[in-house]
């Protein structure tokens, strides 16, 4: 069967099935299980109202449980077993093996660098762009152009930036902007940028900063506009200069939004995979955890160590998870 038909069929079956499920399960509840008539009408209505939320929630709960909650525990279990020994329990052996691999420490160090640099610069550029574009007439267009990389896939971005970092031998015309600029500023010979340890990691981070700045800008720009005008007017009347207004009046009022932006980008960074996979595949000391894990799972076929490194990512995410849940609960009260 042609995949397009298969896709169409899935839409019809999937959507039709969902609609049918919701419709008929409701009908069943109202007509058969707890009909709102007869001598138990009142009791039945109450019962139906107790059951109905679960009918509405059921498909979502099954999908969430199966695709997100169960894997967390299963991965934890896998990280404590060895596939080559038929899934025998091996305690922390996988973690020990992982800790003995220099590639893991390289990935962890790089991940921490990513965690420091990407959220910081994305937020900073985002704030800068938000503050500047709010004051000019063509700000909306400027914003939409800075926001645009958000729609581009990590793989597409990898191709875009690989062209920027491209190298041609000395004597030929450089086709990568970076080398062209480097040579015109007096560099002696074209550099293979992506093979220079440390700096190549930074260059990969630039790609993610380029993508995430738009996100930070959109959120922060909304926050900036939400600041009450009176506070700014009062500061200006009191003789504050634009920089003082920005740093001492506006910044404190949007600090909670900055935290939200920062943590959201942090989570993106922890999961970053495509950029490294497509641009260097972890060579030349650019390894990161997500790509290390992919290597272990699907190239070395070592599910134990792969799962162990996935648990490390989970561990790094969990403070943010707890913080988000805590905030959400606080808000609901």
């Amino acid at each position: 069967m042609h995949p397009a038909f298969q896709g169409l069929l899935t839409i019809i079956v999937g959507v039709g099935g969902c609609v049918a499920y919701y419709y008929f399960s409701n009908q069943f509840l109202d007509r058969v299980l707890c009909p709102a008539r007869g001598k138990h009408a009142g009791r039945n209505i109450n019962r139906a109202n107790m059951i109905r939320p679960w009918l509405f929630l059921m498909p979502a709960l099954i999908a969430l449980g199966l695709y997100l909650a169960y894997p967390v525990f299963e991965t934890l279990r896998l990280s404590l077993t060895d596939r080559s020994q038929g899934g025998a329990f091996v305690g922390l052996a996988n973690y020990q093996q992982m800790a003995s691999e220099p590639k893991f420490w390289e990935a962890l160090t790089n991940n921490f660098l990513w965690l420091l640099i990407v959220p910081a610069f994305s937020t900073m550029f985002g704030l800068l762009a938000a503050q500047l574009t709010d004051r000019i007439g063509w700000g909306a267009i400027a914003k939409s152009l800075i926001f645009m990389p958000m729609a581009i896939s990590f793989v597409g971005a990898a191709v875009i930036w690989k062209l920027v970092y491209d190298t041609r031998p000395l004597g030929q015309d450089q086709i990568g902007v970076m080398n062209a600029v480097y040579l015109s500023l007096g560099g002696d010979e074209p550099q293979q940028w992506l093979t220079i340890p440390f700096w190549n990691s930074i260059l990969l981070m630039v790609v993610l900063i380029w993508i995430q700045t738009g996100f930070a800008m959109v959120i922060l720009s909304a926050a900036l506009r939400g600041i009450p005008e009176e506070t700014i007017e009062a500061a200006i009347v009191d003789g504050a200069n634009p920089f003082q207004v920005f740093f001492q009046i506006k910044m404190p009022q949007i600090s909670s939004t900055i935290v939200v932006v920062w943590t959201t980008i942090t989570i993106v960074v922890l999961k970053v995979f495509d950029i490294v996979f497509a641009m260097t595949n972890g060579q030349w000391e650019t390894q990161v955890l997500a790509n290390y894990m992919y290597d272990k799972l699907f190239r070395a076929n070592d599910w134990g160590v792969g799962s162990a490194s996935a648990m490390v990512i989970m561990l790094l995410v969990s403070p943010i998870l707890v913080w988000n849940v805590y905030n959400a609960r606080k808000e609901m009260r």
Binding site: L64, L68, P71, V72, E74, V317, L321, N324, V325, R329
Partner: peptide, 22 residues
């Protein structure tokens, strides 16, 4: 309330964890 909190929590679970089990 518990379910809402769970959804907020699952929001950040990295999909990397789901690869092998799924």
């Amino acid at each position: 309330a518990l379910l809402i909190a769970a959804v907020v929590g699952l929001l950040v679970v990295p999909l990397q964890l789901a690869l092998i089990p799924l």
